[in-house]
């Protein structure tokens, strides 16, 4: 079993097609929708945590890619600019999923990107603007 967080970008023409439904039905994958957003004039975006056998996962990704969905790994989407981070820790209580943790020894703030669901709250909440959103 593997579990990965991915970002799906749906071009406009695909927004009304039930693509992710087929991930369950045809590829036996489990998913948890972390974020979904569709605006009439724009593309759709969905952040998924996808679980299943490696083989099924690969097939499911292939199906989505062939349908025209653009897929990114989630961890590439919010990153910390280490040069700008002052380790104040303001992000710790802003993040809804606990992706920031204080290291009690070094008193530095750790960014656990595995816990990040790309909600974006930390982007504006970070005083030196060290958190960067990449799409």
């Amino acid at each position: 079993m593997i579990s990965r967080k991915i970002v799906l970008h749906f071009p406009r023409r695909l927004v009304d097609r039930p693509l992710v439904y087929h991930l369950i039905k045809d590829y036996n994958l489990e998913f948890n929708i972390l974020k979904a957003q569709v605006t009439p004039a724009e593309e759709g975006l969905m952040v998924l945590e996808l679980k299943g056998k490696q083989e099924d996962y690969d097939k499911g990704i292939k199906y989505l890619t062939e349908a025209g969905v653009i897929i990114d790994a989630l961890s590439q989407n919010v990153s910390r600019n280490e040069q700008r981070c002052t380790h104040c820790g303001a992000c710790i209580t802003i993040c809804p999923t606990g992706a920031f943790e204080l290291d009690f020894v070094t008193r530095k703030t750790k960014f656990l990107d595995k816990k990040c669901i790309v909600c974006g709250l930390c982007i504006k909440g970070c005083p030196p603007r060290a958190m960067e959103l990449h799409f």
Binding site: T86, H87, C88, G89, A90, C91, I92, T93, I94, L102, T106, R107, K108, P127
Partner: peptide
């Protein structure tokens, strides 16, 4: 405050800082 949680009116409240202790060190 530096444990990351304080109790106020019986409620556990998460804490965070705007002053960087590691940079102060």
């Amino acid at each position: 405050l530096k444990t990351g949680k304080i109790t106020i009116q019986g409620k556990k409240v998460p804490t965070s800082s705007f002053s960087s202790y590691s940079k102060a060190v």
